[in-house]
Amino acid sequence: MATLHTRSSARLMMAPAVIMLLVWMAVPLAMTLYFSFLRYNLLTPGLEEWVGFFNYKYFLTDPAFGDALVNTLLLVGGVLLITVIGGTMLALLLDQPFFGQGIVRLMVIAPFFVMPTVSALVWKNMFMHPVYGLFAYVWKLFGLEPVDWLASLPLFSITMMVAWQWLPFATLILLTALQSLDEEQKEAAEMDGAGFFSKFVYIVLPHLARAITVVILIETIFLLSVFAEILVTTSGGPGTQSTNITYLVYTQALLQFDVGGASAGGIIAVILANIVAFFLIRLIGKNLEA
């Protein structure tokens, strides 16, 4: 019953949000694309010139790019593995009735609300410090040589920190999905003599499949852009051992002032993210019709 009148006022109501987002997305992205074809360094203003695909060639053949790409994939993959498996197990646990369940649930989701810089500095200093950190203390307790986590295992350490922050997200979403599972279906399976594992594999897991997909896709979007944790702990080092694509573009832009190179890197990051986004959008779009 939308009349012509209401339809045009609806359009008017939508306009501010649409226009602002359009400007926010299109203008800077177009500028990045344009810059990526220029030789453009903030230290040598006035010397900008068109260089075609030079920046892309430079960025893609830079050994640091290969390292950063591998690190990005390892970081995203590692965190996904830990949070999806850990999150599923935690969700199953929190779905069981026990004393103080509500409090345990609050404790489990708490890390998600800790800002990335706090989380990174707390882990770096109070836990992973090679001399005074709690891990060093525990290692010595067992007669082991303390590990200098961020120097010898930088990417692994950062993966752990980030996984700690994202585990609550996976848990919370999987728990929500789990609680919508029909109780009677489980009971029927139990009466048919299904054990824990067959119940899990044939009933719970298929029910969770959708939620797990959502967790994987959304986490991937955010994890491709992990930045603060790297900045305040290792600054991408030693060497490029913990540099991801986001951090590499940042160093290129704001530390080396190479606008052209950084822009080419930015465009490459956008393309990578788009591959993931393509699947996510389709998944959520399907849900919208239902």
Binding site: S225, A253, G265, A269, V270
Partner: peptide
Amino acid sequence: MLPPVGVLV
């Protein structure tokens, strides 16, 4: 889903 580095510069 646009990564922030894409528009940082």
